[in-house]
Simulated assay, not measured.
Amino acid sequence: TVGAPEQFGLLFEKGNPLVGKVNDALAQLTSSGELRRITEQWLGSQAGAPVLR
């Protein structure tokens, strides 16, 4: 990869009770390495997604 890694985010309505659950799930996916594997499979160069410049 060239340049800085991309960052993605999620938007929730203020006070949405799911925010904590989603944050917990993302933390678990990140610590297990699963988020990296998902990112590489679906967003990496192998997935064939175009690179926007």
Rank of each mutant, 00 (worst) to 15 (best):
T39R: 03
Q41D: 09
G20V: 12
V22D: 08
T39V: 00
W42N: 06
S32V: 04
S45T: 06
F12A: 05
L18V: 08
E40D: 07
K21R: 14
G9N: 08
E40S: 04
N23R: 14
L11K: 12
V51Q: 15
G15D: 12
L10A: 08
L52S: 07
P50N: 02
N16H: 15
L35F: 12
Q7K: 13
A49C: 11
P17W: 13
L11M: 15
I38Y: 07
S45C: 00
G15T: 11
A49G: 05
R37G: 00
A25S: 08
A27H: 12
I38H: 01
G15N: 13
Q28Y: 13
V22Q: 11
L29G: 03
P17M: 05
D24P: 01
L43K: 03
S45W: 06
N23T: 10
I38E: 06
P50I: 00
F12I: 08
G15H: 12
L43R: 01
S45G: 08
L35P: 02
G33V: 00
V22F: 07
G33N: 02
G20C: 11
A25F: 03
G9H: 12
E6H: 09
R36F: 05
G48M: 00
T39E: 06
V51N: 13
N16R: 10
L18Q: 15
S31Q: 14
L43I: 01
N16F: 07
L35K: 01
K21E: 15
E34I: 01
N16V: 01
W42C: 04
Q28H: 11
N23K: 15
K14A: 15
N16P: 06
V22S: 09
F12S: 04
G33C: 02
L52R: 10
L35T: 00
Q41A: 06
G15C: 09
G33H: 02
V51C: 08
Q41C: 02
V22R: 03
S31V: 00
A25C: 03
K21I: 14
Q7F: 14
T39D: 07
V22A: 11
I38R: 09
L10D: 03
L11S: 14
F12C: 04
Q41H: 08
F8T: 06
L52V: 11
L18T: 09
S31H: 07
F12T: 06
V51A: 06
